[in-house]
């Protein structure tokens, strides 16, 4: 017998009106599926590729080496007095999280079309699981950062305790963008081709290879409309110190909150048509 006839779930099915509540309790109910999605992704990557999770480390590490040679050494980009490799790797970590989540999640709804036309589950899990996988990678490559800092004889100060907060900030930024892109990709298949280009451009307008101090001070609030600016600045501040990037963090955080709420609403509004569209 089904366990507990007492708490039989009752579902009322009706055409949704214009306003759909974001049922967070439902997400909680399906948390094991989120876990299964993330676990499957990580497990498959580990099995399919020779380097396995090593890719999580190799990608930012190699990018760091290339940036250090070309921007740090040859172009002589300043790095606020911090060894350039540490300086750029610090920024590459949240950047990688963001970029990976963007690429994976924008395709997540479409690649899981067989599943979502066969069983019911909150579609929000799809972009969320992409972000969660990115967080797993992030955690792995964060260990490398600590090694790198030790190599340069640097020790993180007490501000490093705020790293989880910045990681959350990065994850929220990635989620906000992912919600929009994954939902848009169902309707407009162009998105899939736009995302690689988008992330490339986005990398240049984010202080990964260069410091924010390069941007004239009056332009910084405008610059911080790119939420990754606040994320990267906050991350650097927490790990290698420097001035507290108050204004950029505030502006970026505000942008993320607006995009996240907007993204949730847009996603919820369109998800009911996913099964009919994909």
């Amino acid at each position: 017998m089904p366990d507990g006839t007492r708490d039989v779930p009752v579902h009322h099915i009706a055409p949704a009106g214009g306003w759909i509540p974001i049922r967070l309790s439902e997400l909680w109910e399906f948390r094991e599926l989120l876990y299964a999605f993330v676990w499957r992704e990580v497990r498959v990557r580990y099995k399919q590729t020779a380097l396995g999770v090593g890719w999580a480390v190799a990608q930012p590490l190699l990018t760091m080496v290339v940036f250090s040679v070309f921007f740090g050494k040859l172009a002589g980009v300043e790095s606020d007095g911090i060894p350039y490799p540490v300086f750029t790797y610090c920024a590459l970590l949240p950047w990688q999280l963001f970029a990976f989540a963007l690429v994976e999640s924008s395709n997540s709804v479409v690649t899981n079309q067989r599943l979502l036309t066969k069983v019911y589950f909150p579609k929000l899990l799809l972009p969320l699981s992409a972000v969660a996988v990115a967080l797993v990678d992030f955690t792995v490559s964060f260990g490398v950062l600590l090694l790198l800092m030790a190599w340069f004889g640097m020790t993180p100060g007490p501000a490093a305790l705020t790293v989880p907060l910045w990681a959350l900030f990065a994850a929220m930024t990635a989620t906000a963008a992912s919600l929009w892109l994954s939902a848009l990709n169902v309707r407009y298949r162009d998105i899939r081709y736009t995302v690689p280009f988008l992330t490339q451009i986005w990398l240049f307008v984010t202080p990964v290879a260069y410091p924010t101090s390069l941007v004239p001070e009056i332009w910084r609030p405008l610059y911080a409309l790119n939420p990754m600016v606040g994320v990267v600045d906050g991350f650097r501040w927490a790990l290698v110190g420097g001035d507290w990037p108050g204004i950029t963090v505030l502006v970026s955080a505000a942008v993320v909150v607006v995009c996240l709420v907007g993204g949730l609403i847009y996603f919820r509004r369109t998800e009911r048509t996913f099964a009919d569209l994909v």
Partner: peptide, 24 residues
């Protein structure tokens, strides 16, 4: 519609109990 994969355009349905399907 009954398994909540797609929404109806009109009308309502009430489903009491956990729904499973062999269709997947």
């Amino acid at each position: 519609i009954l398994s909540r994969i797609t929404e109806p355009t009109r009308g309502t349905a009430t489903v009491r109990g956990r729904v499973g399907s062999l269709l997947e």
